[in-house]
Nucleic acid binder design. Structure first.
Lengths: 245, 245
DNA sequence: GTCATATGGTGTATCTTGTACACGAAGTAA
DNA sequence: TTACTTCGTGTACAAGATACACCATATGAC
C-alpha cells in the first residue's frame, strides 16, 4: 500500500531522525495493480491496510522504495512480501504525485501493473495478517488514497495494449483452449467476438499452437488446449512482425 | 536537467540542513524530452549543463519537483524556466530510478515528453546563460546521466503512439500541406509512404480539412494547406471512433 | 444404451480496406 | 517560351474483415 508503515522483513530500519537534507524531499513508494482473469471477469488484487492512514480500508499492495533498490525490484519485492505473488508479468504504469494524495505529506508513487494467472493464486478471501482479496473491477470497495484512479489507468493500459502486444497470455494458464482465449479478449475489450473469425485470425498469426492435451474435468466435449509460442514471437518481432487482434 | 543544482528564480531556498526524516528519501526530479520536427528529421531539445556533475555536458531540461507542486506542473515549469517553451503537448513518459543513475546519490526522475512546433522555437544555437540547442536524433552529443536512454524511450513512445492517436499534428504548424504531414509520418515511422494512398487514407478519416490558404514562398506550385479538426476528433472519440494511420 | 444437454469445431460468400502504380496541371525562374 | 519542381489525382487487384449455421463429441441422467 502506498506509503504504509514499513513492514519488518529482514531489513533493519536505521534509527529515526537521522536523514537530513538541504531541501524537502518527497517519500517515494511503489504500488502494484495486479489483474487476474476469473471465469467471467477481470479482478484486481487488494489488501486491507493494517495501519493508519486508511486503516482497514482496501488498497493496492505496495510500499516504500529502499535506498539502494531499483523501482522494478521494489515493486516485485512488495508484491512478494504482501501477497506472495512472484514471477508475474510486471510493467511500470504511471507515476502519481499530486501534492495531497497522501494525508501524511508528500508521497509520490510509481505505479506498476501486473498480470497474473488467477488460478495460481487462490487467496480468494483472507490469507495473511491483513486480508488479501480479488475484487471484480465493477464491484470495487472503497479504496485508500488515489488507488481507484490508479486501477482505472491500469485497466485502460491493458485494454490499449492487449490488441497490439501478446500480453493476454499472461492472464491464462500455459495451456488454454481457444474459447478461453476468446473470452479473455471479450472481457478485456468489452465486446463480443465471432468464434470462427476469432479462431481464423488467431491461428493465422501462427503464434498459438496446438498441443496434444485436452481440457479436463468438464461435463461436455473437452476442448483442445493450445499454447503461446513465445520464442517464435520473439523471433518474428526482430523481423518487424506486428501482432494485432 | 536531472538533479542539477536549483537555479535562482523567484523561489527562495530554505536554510540548508533543515529537512529531517526517519528514513532516507530519494530526491525527485522531472526531465523533459522535447521533440521537434525539422525539414528532414526529428530533433530533441538539449541544454548544456552549467553545474557539476556533468558540467558543460548536454542534458535534458529538467529539475527538482517543488514540495507542493504537481509532477506535470513541475515539468512545464522547468521547460519554461530553462528553454522558454510553453503551451506544448506534454505527457508523462516513464520514471527512471536506477540507484546509481546520478553520481550525487539517489535521484528518481519522472520523465516527460513534449512535442513542439520547432518553427516556433528558433533557439538554434545558444540562447541563455547555458546553451540550448536542437539536436537530430541520429547525431546526439554525449549526454549526462541516463538521458540517452530517456530520449530513446521517448522516441519509441512517439513511434508507437503516432499511428493510433493524432498527436503528429502537435509537431506541425496549425496549417500544413498534406506533403508535410506525410513527411512527418515518414520520418517518425521510418518508412516511405505512397502519396496517393496516404492522402486517400487521411482524407477518408475526415479529420483533416481543407482551408482556403496556400503554401507561401515556395519556388514551385504552392500546395493547399489543411488543418486538423480537433473538435470533430473529440466528438468522434466519445462515440468510440478509432484514429489509425 | 439411448437420449438430452452443452460446448467444440469447422467453411464460404461478400464487403471493406490496403496496395501498387504514372502522368498532366500549376506555379516559378531564367 | 522553356525548363524545372512539386501538386494533385484514379483504377485494378489483393488481402483481410465480417457475417453467418450446423454437425461432432463428450457427459450425465434415466
Amino acid at each position: 500500500m502506498a506509503a504504509a508503515g514499513r513492514k519488518g522483513e529482514t531489513w533493519t530500519p536505521p534509527p529515526p531522525g537521522r536523514h537530513v537534507y538541504d531541501y524537502p524531499r518527497p517519500a517515494v513508494t511503489v504500488d502494484c495493480v495486479v489483474l487476474g482473469l476469473d471465469a467471467d471477469d477481470l479482478k484486481v488484487l487488494l489488501i486491507q491496510r493494517g495501519l493508519e492512514p486508511y486503516q482497514h480500508t482496501w488498497a493496492l499492495p505496495g510500499g516504500f522504495v529502499l535506498p539502494d533498490e531499483d523501482l522494478d525490484t521494489a515493486a516485485r519485492r512488495e508484491l512478494r512480501e504482501e501477497t506472495n505473488i512472484e514471477d508475474v508479468y510486471l510493467e511500470q504504469l504511471y507515476t502519481f504525485g499530486a501534492p495531497r494524495r497522501d494525508p501524511r505529506g508528500r508521497v509520490i508513487t510509481v505505479a506498476y501493473y501486473a498480470l497474473a494467472k488467477l488460478s495460481d493464486y487462490r487467496v480468494t478471501a483472507a490469507t495473511d495478517a491483513e486480508s488479501v482479496g480479488w475484487y471484480p473491477l465493477d464491484k470495487l470497495p472503497a479504496l485508500a488514497f488515489d488507488h481507484a484512479d490508479i486501477i482505472l489507468r491500469a485497466v485502460e493500459r491493458l485494454r490499449g495494449k492487449v490488441r497490439y502486444v501478446p500480453i493476454g497470455f499472461e492472464l491464462l494458464p500455459p495451456r488454454f483452449s481457444l474459447t478461453q482465449l476468446q473470452r479473455l479478449y471479450e472481457i478485456v475489450l468489452e465486446r463480443q467476438l465471432d468464434k470462427r473469425n476469432f479462431r481464423k485470425k488467431i491461428l493465422s498469426l501462427g503464434l498459438v499452437v496446438e498441443t496434444e492435451e485436452l481440457e479436463q474435468g468438464v461435463r461436455h466435449r473437452a476442448a483442445r488446449l493450445f499454447r503461446f509460442d513465445k520464442k517464435k514471437y520473439e523471433r518474428l518481432l526482430k523481423q518487424g512482425f506486428e501482432f494485432a487482434i
